[in-house]
Amino acid sequence: MRKILYILLFPLIISCTKKGDTKTVTDKEMYSIINFVISTELPRLSNTSDKGYITESFTNSLFFRQKEYLNTNADSLFNKKDIEFIHQQMNDTLFKLNPDLIKSKTVVSFDTLMKLRNKGERSSKFWERFSEKYGKHEYFSISKPLFSVDKKTVIVSYGFHCGSLCGGGSTEIYRLVGKKWERIKTIETWVS
């Protein structure tokens, strides 16, 4: 009897696993958009032509709590299932850039950067320490990309940081058209 029950339940378990697979984002999918942004979007933010440094951005958790960009209406780029999937990805807060999958930038973890800061201290001290350690006075940041269920639409934030009142960035929505990412909407831009 038990064997029959296992035989009957096995296809159900396998089908649930396959359905669950569409609810994850692979490294290949994630680094496709990350490396696209690094090669095409980040150069627009600075005049630097060399490799430079990049870190994880914390903007997703702050910015995407604003509901107006993640609601369903006539103008929405996302349906209800997409929004649920995006929130699921936001709740997975462990996002660390993988240096082996990044092209043309050296990864410095956000945690490493935070160790250069001391609470209550002027930001100029951070930049002094950063310059001493890395020989530069600038770095880029990129957020965890947040994908639609079909993985063809993604929200990502990125920025260029070069001092306490120096930098800029934006939050964009991209769509995969064929094998190429295209910007379809700018949600927010900032300049410091």
Rank of each mutant, 00 (worst) to 15 (best):
K105H: 08
T22F: 11
L42W: 07
A74M: 15
I142C: 01
N35I: 00
S124V: 09
V108F: 04
S143P: 00
T48Q: 12
P99Y: 06
G169Q: 01
I83R: 03
D111Q: 13
V108C: 02
N91T: 09
D21M: 08
V149F: 09
T17A: 13
W181T: 02
S32I: 05
L9W: 07
I14Y: 05
V107I: 06
N73Q: 08
E182H: 12
Q89P: 00
M30T: 12
S46A: 09
S157N: 15
R122Y: 15
F85M: 03
T26V: 02
K152R: 11
K67E: 08
N91S: 08
S57H: 04
G120N: 08
Y69T: 05
F130W: 08
F160G: 00
L101R: 07
S157M: 07
I142V: 11
A74H: 10
F140V: 03
L12S: 09
D100V: 11
K125H: 12
T59Q: 11
N98T: 06
S131F: 15
E29R: 08
V154T: 08
F78W: 10
L77H: 14
F63V: 13
P99Q: 03
D82M: 03
E172W: 06
I38V: 09
G159N: 03
T40A: 08
Q88R: 15
T72M: 15
M30Y: 01
V37R: 03
F85I: 04
G169Y: 00
K180Q: 13
G169N: 02
S157A: 14
P99C: 07
I184F: 06
L101F: 06
K152A: 04
F147C: 03
P145Q: 04
N47R: 15
T26A: 03
F95Q: 03
K133L: 10
G163E: 00
I38T: 02
Y31L: 06
F160T: 01
K81Y: 12
D82A: 05
G159E: 02
D21L: 11
Q89S: 07
L45G: 05
T17H: 13
L70K: 07
D75A: 08
I102V: 13
V107K: 00
K23N: 15
R129Q: 14
L77V: 07
E41V: 00
K81D: 14
G168W: 00
